[in-house]
Amino acid sequence: MTVKLHAITFDCVDPQALAQFWSRVLGQDVDPSDSPGIATIGMGQSSPFYVFQKLDGLPAGRNRAHPDFATSDYEAECTRLLGVGASVVAEVKENGIRFTTFTDPEGNTFDLADE
């Protein structure tokens, strides 16, 4: 038996606002939803899709898992991510790899690597 990545879920305070941020990052629309506590991107279209769920009492500190993205236009994409509301945590160059760690508007970390 095997498993595959089904969804990446973000626990958050404001699912709609966070989904809007990630829709700009990913270049995909937020899915229509009747639930104010859940927002999704790409549900039923691809796997993985993205889920943003309202959770009261979020723990403080760095998230323990995070998505990594890669691009062939690293500088332009870093600038674009800053323009849609991401913040830089760290810029790293090690072992021939260059990446930037960002946070989204609720503090969730994600990395962008230079292909």
Rank of each mutant, 00 (worst) to 15 (best):
G83A: 09
I41F: 01
E77R: 12
S72R: 11
F52D: 00
N63S: 12
D56S: 06
L82T: 05
V89M: 10
N63Y: 09
S47A: 11
P59F: 01
E91R: 03
N63A: 13
P48V: 05
S87Q: 04
N63D: 06
V89T: 14
M43V: 05
Y74P: 05
E77A: 06
Y50S: 12
L55V: 04
D68P: 04
A65P: 00
Q45C: 07
G57H: 08
G61Y: 05
D68N: 13
P48G: 07
A86P: 03
G57C: 04
P59G: 03
A65V: 05
S87L: 01
A76S: 15
D73M: 11
V92A: 03
F69Q: 14
V88D: 03
V88T: 02
S72V: 09
Y50C: 11
V84N: 12
T40F: 08
A76L: 12
K54H: 13
S47R: 15
A60C: 04
Q45A: 11
G61R: 14
K54I: 08
A76M: 08
V92G: 03
V88M: 00
V84Q: 07
G57Q: 07
A39G: 03
R62T: 08
G44V: 00
T71G: 05
L55E: 01
F49K: 07
G42R: 08
I38A: 08
P67D: 15
D73I: 11
Q53A: 00
V92N: 08
V84W: 10
M43D: 11
G37W: 00
M43E: 15
G85K: 02
P67G: 11
H66M: 11
G44A: 04
P48S: 09
P48W: 12
P67C: 12
V51N: 14
G85R: 03
I38G: 06
N63V: 11
A60V: 10
L55G: 00
Y74C: 04
R80D: 10
T71Y: 08
P36A: 14
V89W: 10
T79Q: 09
T79S: 12
Y50H: 14
G61C: 09
V89E: 14
P36K: 15
G57Y: 03
F49L: 07
A76N: 10
T79H: 10
S72A: 07
A65L: 08
L81W: 11
G57I: 10
V51T: 11
P36D: 14
A39Y: 00
V89N: 13
L81E: 13
L55T: 09
T71I: 12
F69E: 07
C78P: 01
H66N: 12
L82I: 06
Y50P: 04
G44C: 03
F52Q: 00
A90G: 02
R64E: 04
A86G: 03
Y50Q: 15
Q53K: 02
I41D: 02
L82D: 07
D68Q: 11
S87D: 02
A39L: 02
P36R: 15
I41M: 00
A76I: 05
L82E: 13
R62Q: 14
V51A: 09
Q53F: 00
G83V: 10
V92H: 12
V51W: 05
G61V: 07
R62S: 10
I38M: 13
G42M: 02
I38C: 09
V89H: 08
V88G: 01
P36Y: 08
L81D: 10
V51Q: 14
S47G: 06
K54M: 05
Q53E: 01
L82P: 07
L58Q: 13
A90H: 04
A39N: 06
Q45G: 09
